[in-house]
Amino acid sequence: MASTSVATAPGRSEWDGGSSPMGASYGKLMMWFFLLSDAFTFSALLITYGLVRSAHKAFDYTGEFVFSQNYWPVPEKVYEAVPFLEGYALPLVFVGIMTFILIMSSVTMVLAVEAGHRMDRKAVEKWMLWTILGGVAFLSCQAWEWAHFIHGSHHGSAVAEGTTFFGANLVQNQYGPPAFADFFFFITGFHGFHVFSGVCLNFLIYYNTVMGVYDRRGHYEMVEKVGLYWHFVDLVWVFVFTFFYLV
């Protein structure tokens, strides 16, 4: 349906690059293909996690779960801390809040895109600000989670030479095999860096909107392109949430 409605560019015939068969501008198309390549990068990280995890022993669910170097930890036992509620076991609650924040910021982003289609600058500004706020909130949550993971819980865990080790770094890990902590740092870190660059791009879009750049340009397509990136970041988090925290 849509393929027939593509107009030819002025001064160029259809066989001279005059029409866009995909019905999308160059920039939008390139954003799509960039995101596809980024999807491969994230898949490689998550699938490698799957490989290493399935090459380790799993907890057999007999008796109480304790952190051990001998088997892969159950993620909900690792991530059960919530700020201001020290000492309570609240598995996955905090990461659930983070998921909610990111989904909501995806909604505000798509509302900004919708407002852009209508050339409604005030609405674009409003929704972009909400989106930036969501991104910053998510990053703050992640900073807290990293800090908690690195410093560890009160229990600690015995390491080879007989001392007790709290928390995790790239070589030692209280919660289980060191590879678990490595993947945590790499996967959530790589995703967090995407969120960070997304917030920067969102701010740039917000700034340009306020300065009236898109009003002068006559369209708000930049909001749409950066919106695609922002939704992708949300999409990756959905997979990280499932494969790192739930499964």
Partner: peptide, 19 residues
């Protein structure tokens, strides 16, 4: 969930079939 994000939010469901 991924289908919701890509299809609705990223609008891919409504793009040209080739894309």
């Amino acid at each position: 969930k991924a289908a919701f994000i890509v299809g609705e939010f990223m609008h891919l469901r409504y793009e040209v079939k080739v894309l």
